[in-house]
Design a protein around this nucleic acid. Structure first.
Length: 404
DNA sequence: GTCAATTCACATGAAAGAGACCACGGTCTAGTG
DNA sequence: CTAGACCGTGGTCTCTTTCATGTGAATTGACGA
């Protein structure tokens, strides 16, 4: 593009009427003022937490629900309201929201408590202190002022599956150590079976109250999308049926509102880039595959080098082998060792590669099924789980990243 | 032909190690008054 | 005398290795019909 064309391009860009009025309304952090179809849940959460306004400790609460069913949204909605009231009436209430999935912030016991202390304004080293030391720091902070504390732990299943359930036990036990203050815990989990893995003592005290968020159905999704689209898009830029298709798509995937919104947003972005005036139904498919491709590429690029080599081995043997012929762990490991030799990287043991393959499976890049070949042993049967068009891109990225 | 034992090629678990971070306290050094 | 540089120690955290145990069906081989 020459300079003139570039100017022209920008001129034209400025000329075209923008599709979006407020794109933020479609992003996942957006907090809408009203939350359709969650009135009952809001009432319940509010009811459970209300005693805190009379300076009584509310029950611990446990919330289940699949992704994109509005759990975090509802809790944040209620807690921010409480916070406002507390500030207005000068009540000694503090509410902390922590997402346990956030890497390097709250994904281990130490980091979680450190983060809590930080919220109190206490400077805490990111590492280096013994864990009980950090607990002491935190307790001191809390005890300085008489407080009622609500601790919202989002995606708590992630945390527990990583570090075990002692952390919850410790948190619950904090109450007995605190003299002036009191803590309630709100746990939010995507995994419905989560509490089954917990120590019974922890389970009973953690889920004094329980709440399940059902998935949205297609009709509800449609209303949510309409509601948000109204503030996100300008008038008349959505073709008839776009919202319906988005909601149908998300309803298929266990009623995940977040995905529906993302789909709508990406479709809008694609339309904008194409310079079209209206979001068309047929662009939704493109949006869908773009979302998927971006996700895959993102995941792969954030993988450590060793996983990338392992994945590259899988890609390579996938292209070597005839259509749909199964690939086994042993083959991958041989190829992997060869690649390591070529690139002068120290190869990992088969044990580790086995785990890495399982991890790639978890990420949805491959599917690996454990099968038994009878006399010929037990192994994983590995297939790629990404479309061909993406495979090529993945291949390029890996090649570049690994200098092969 | 039937049935239990065998066998393969890994899967899966547990525990411990390596190495990168980091804080803290003590010691050393150079600069200052 | 003091601020800053420089250790050693002890802690966390992530990624790995080592060692040990588990596993499911094809294959084998003994057995009886």
């Amino acid at each position: 593009m020459g300079e003139k064309e570039l100017t022209k391009f920008f001129e034209e860009y400025l000329q075209t009427k923008p599709l979006f009025k407020n794109k933020k309304a479609l992003q996942s952090q957006y907090m809408p003022k009203t939350i359709p179809h969650r009135e009952k849940e809001i009432d319940k959460v509010a009811g459970i937490l209300a005693p805190i306004l009379r300076t009584e400790r509310p029950s611990n609460l446990f919330i289940y629900g699949k992704t994109g069913t509005g759990k975090s949204l509802v809790v944040q909605h209620v807690t921010t309201t409480i916070n406002e009231i507390a500030i207005k009436n000068k009540l000694p209430i503090k509410i902390f929201y922590l997402n346990c999935k956030l890497k390097r912030i709250a994904d281990t016991e130490y980091r979680l408590v450190a983060q809590l202390s930080r919220e109190f304004g206490q400077e805490v080293p990111t590492t280096g202190l013994p864990t009980d030391e950090i607990y002491k720091l935190f307790i001191n902070q809390v005890e300085k002022e008489k407080l009622l504390l609500i601790l919202v732990l989002d995606e708590i299943d992630q945390l527990v599956s990583k570090v075990g359930d002692e952390i919850l036990y410790n948190l619950i036990r904090l109450n007995t150590e605190l003299k002036k203050s009191e803590i309630s815990i709100i746990g939010i989990s995507n995994d419905l079976m989560f509490t089954n893995y917990l120590d019974p003592r922890v389970r009973s005290s953690l889920s004094e109250e329980e709440l399940v968020f059902p998935p949205y159905n297609a009709i509800q999704l449609k209303e949510i999308l309409e509601h948000r689209a109204k503030s996100a898009f300008n008038e008349n830029v959505l073709e008839e049926g776009v919202i319906e298709k988005c909601s149908a798509y998300a309803a298929r995937e266990h009623g995940d509102a977040r995905r529906a919104l993302e789909l709508l947003r990406v479709a809008g972005e694609i339309t904008e880039r194409k310079g079209l005036e209206k979001v068309r139904i047929k662009d939704l498919d493109e949006a869908e595959s773009k979302i998927e491709r971006d996700r895959v590429l993102d995941v792969i690029q954030s993988q450590p080098k060793q996983s990338q080599i392992a994945l590259y081995s899988i890609l390579k043997s996938h292209s070597n082998v005839k259509e749909d012929a199964p690939i086994f762990t042993g083959d991958i490991y041989e190829l992997y060792k060869e690649l390591c030799f070529k690139t002068k990287i120290r190869p990992l043991t088969q044990r580790r590669i086995s785990d890495i393959i399982a991890e790639l499976d978890m990420l949805g890049i491959i599917t690996a099924k454990v099968i038994s070949k009878g006399r010929y042993g037990r192994t994983r049967q590995i297939c790629l789980a990404i479309p061909d068009s993406t495979i090529i891109k993945v291949n390029d990225i890996l090649k570049e990243g690994l200098n092969i």
